[in-house]
């Protein structure tokens, strides 16, 4: 049974009608990320996002970007690990298998990785079909995890649910986008996102600090100031059939872009392949439509627990519990009314 059937179409109820498109998404395969940060640069350039911070070194391996935010819509994480941590990661991945995680389809049905350039095949072809040693060039002593993080374009997006102005909307591609001219910067979405992605743009500049010594900050320096900002999955490129800037620039195809369904299938095939190679630390993040956010649009393949990469281990969109919260608020309000009534009935003059 393929689990892809159980995915909910996030834009189904939105009256896109004949403009509706297949859901688009990413598959970010961190096992082949080389940490070049080309995606970060491409995203900044295409979207003309201001710089963050003041070019400080953050003392976190080669990550001097820090985190996703209003001005950073792709963020490459770097984690250095020793043998103990590798062993632990391998073990925790193995445990996921023994827990009977859902969705193990028949391996034969795996498509030959649509769009995923498989280095082994390529090499084999180059060498004239000669069989090669396919073991990844890893040592057991240390490893470097690199992962390009991005907005998850959740099936049930917390940011979108709580936005009071309707600035955040679900596109015909099933992605989540902010309309900068509608957002009033209330900041509710920032609290609503379980992944800490979206942020209000309160600062930033399009010029490097070094170039504006003593210069007054001019209004145009900061587009969409005071509004919430995050990855649009390059909506502007998507509507004309282009690949998002980050995916297009990725030299290793670590960032794959396409129909969400294909992305999930590719991801499932890839994690099975890595497990077959003994890399039991590999696991998918966000490929389960039954998780707390209904699955995500940008699926990841990780090589350790999600929190190691700064991702929440069990995110849950708060709106799922909203009916109970409203019920509690209603009861509380009724109680308050009753309390005031009692206060007047119980006190004579």
């Amino acid at each position: 049974m393929s689990r892809t059937a159980a995915w909910e179409d996030p834009s189904a109820e939105l009256h896109w009608e004949d403009q509706a498109q297949p859901r688009k998404g990413f598959f970010t395969d961190t096992s082949i990320c080389i940490g070049c940060k080309a995606c970060e640069v491409a995203c900044k350039e295409w979207n003309r996002n201001p710089t963050d911070g003041s070019f400080e070194l953050l003392e976190s391996s080669y990550d001097n970007t820090g985190a996703l935010g209003a001005n950073t819509w792709r963020h490459v994480a770097f984690v250095e690990q020793d043998r103990d941590r590798i062993t632990a990661a391998r073990e925790s991945g193995r445990q996921l298998v023994s827990l009977g995680m859902p969705g193990v389809g028949p391996p034969e049905s795996a498509p030959s990785a649509g769009g995923a350039a498989e280095p082994p095949d390529l090499l084999a072809a180059l060498e004239g079909g000669e069989q090669m040693d396919l073991t990844p060039p890893d040592t057991d002593e240390f490893r470097w995890l690199m992962s390009s993080d991005v907005c998850k374009h959740c099936t049930h997006a917390g940011c979108l649910d709580v936005c009071p102005t309707g600035a955040l909307f679900r596109t015909e591609f099933g992605t989540v986008v902010v309309q900068a001219d509608v957002c009033n910067g209330c900041g509710t979405c920032v609290a609503g996102c379980p992944f800490g992605v979206i942020e209000r743009r309160d600062d930033g500049t399009v010029h490097p600090k070094a170039e504006r010594e003593g210069a007054q900050r001019v209004e145009q320096d900061i587009p969409h100031q005071g509004t919430a900002n995050k990855c649009t999955l390059c909506y502007d490129r998507m509507v004309v059939g282009e690949t998002p800037a980050c995916a297009k620039t990725c030299p290793t195809t670590s960032i794959k872009y396409g129909d969400h369904e294909d992305m999930v299938e590719t991801a499932e095939a890839r994690v099975r392949e890595l497990h077959d190679r003994g890399m039991t630390e590999a696991r998918l993040y966000g490929a389960n439509p039954d998780d707390g956010v209904g699955g995500i649009g940008s699926v990841f393949l990780l090589l350790d627990e999600p929190e190691v990469y700064g991702l929440p281990p069990d995110p849950r969109v708060a709106t799922k519990d909203l009916p109970q919260m409203y019920a509690a608020a209603g009861l509380a309000a009724a109680g308050m009314l009753a309390g005031v009534a009692a206060a007047f009935l119980g006190s004579r003059r």
Binding site: P164, T165, V182, N184, G185, C186, Q225, T227, A228
Partner: peptide, 26 residues
């Protein structure tokens, strides 16, 4: 005063959204 774009306060009343306590609250 706490909005990023205070001049757009009335945009809060563009829509009624049950999933947004901020919207209902406004």
């Amino acid at each position: 005063a706490d909005l990023g774009r205070p001049e757009r306060f009335l945009y809060m009343l563009r829509t009624v959204k049950v999933t947004s306590p901020m919207s209902l609250g406004t």
